[in-house]
């Protein structure tokens, strides 16, 4: 069974923001209101002259144990057979419980469609057509590597199996399928 996920190599991210722009264009996000499916916060560590800057792309973690799905009262938030967490906009009543339940701050309310929205890995518009998500396709540094985490022949699968890529806050028990290759040792 396919288990879609993404590896994010923090060692290569230069914070150019091309992934954000590609996602905004592909998915027509309400970016004018500051609401996006992906964003890249910058973290600075140390003090001059020993300074490290880390850009950390953020998006929905497509958790295997997604709290947003279990709290949804209508089943609008659901997981596909291949492990992608989606929101069915027609079923979403906009109670916003999932927004508060998501520990990764990955969801927002899209007031244009009166529904919660989030990253879909470009599932219906690209992945089902055999393409990779827009952010992955655009990234000039090959920071985002999308693929089947269970496929040992895929780059994503190899990186996931190598143990080099790690989830954010494993203590939360959500089992994210977006894994980070750290730039600094603290991840």
């Amino acid at each position: 069974m396919t288990r879609y996920g993404m590896i994010i190599d923090l060692r290569s991210c230069i914070g150019c923001g091309a992934c954000i722009a590609a996602c905004d264009m592909e998915n027509e996000t309400p970016w004018e209101e500051g609401k996006r499916r992906t964003y890249v916060p910058r973290f600075t560590f140390g003090s001059y002259p020993n300074v490290t800057v880390v850009y950390m792309p953020r998006l929905c973690m497509h958790c295997e144990n997604p709290p947003c799905v279990s709290v949804c009262p209508t089943g609008a938030s659901h997981v596909t057979a291949d492990g992608v967490v989606l929101v069915e906009h027609d079923l979403c009543i906009g109670c916003k419980y999932c927004v508060v339940a998501c520990p990764y701050d990955a969801r927002y309310v899209d007031e244009r469609i009166r529904s919660v929205d989030k990253c879909t890995f470009c599932y219906t518009n690209r992945v089902l057509k055999g393409e990779v998500p827009a952010c992955d396709a655009t990234c000039p540094g090959r920071v985002r590597i999308f693929g089947d985490l269970d496929d040992p022949n895929s780059e994503a699968g190899r990186l996931a199996a190598s143990g080099l890529a790690k989830p954010l806050r494993p203590d939360l028990g959500t089992n994210p399928k977006v894994l980070y290759v750290p730039k600094v040792k603290s991840i």
């Binding site: 009262p73 209508t74 089943g75 079923l91 979403c92 009543i93 906009g94 109670c95 916003k96 309310v109 007031e111 009166r114 529904s115 919660v116």
Partner: peptide, 14 residues
Amino acid sequence: DLEKPEKFYLAVIK
């Protein structure tokens, strides 16, 4: 407080 108050019944019937 719902974004779609007219669909609140979905929280019961689903």
